[in-house]
């Protein structure tokens, strides 16, 4: 179990770096998590993160295809935003659990 400090609040991560409590997420937490991945978050990144959080809280299984059809970004664009792990890295930064889908 790992912990990060964001603005004085201690945030707990599981062994793969995902938030254990999705409710602890906020923009500052996202910025901190993105640093670990060497990603500088832009507005576009946050659009994706918020989309993922919305879908996750609605109980939907997330796939890269769903994000590609969201109208926010196409799949190529998603790879550009989160290189080397479009769905996994974006989910981690969005403070939601690791995706369980194979697509």
């Amino acid at each position: 179990m790992e912990k990060i400090e964001v603005k004085g609040i201690s945030i707990e991560l599981n062994e793969e770096g995902f938030l254990t409590d999705s409710a602890q997420w906020n923009n500052d937490v996202a910025l901190e998590l993105a640093k670990v991945e060497d990603i500088e978050l832009t507005e576009k990144h946050f659009d994706v993160l918020n989309f993922l959080r919305d879908k996750h809280s609605a109980g939907e299984t997330l796939t890269i295809r769903k994000v590609g059809k969201s109208g926010i970004v196409d799949i190529k664009g998603l790879y550009d935003l989160f290189p080397g792990g479009p769905l996994k890295k974006s989910s981690r930064i969005a403070g939601i659990p690791k995706p369980t889908s194979c697509v």
Binding site: Y79, P86, C102, V103
Partner: peptide
């Protein structure tokens, strides 16, 4: 296709 796509999604 699943294996190839799964690979690129994992970097």
């Amino acid at each position: 296709l699943v294996m190839a796509n799964g690979a690129v999604m994992e970097g």
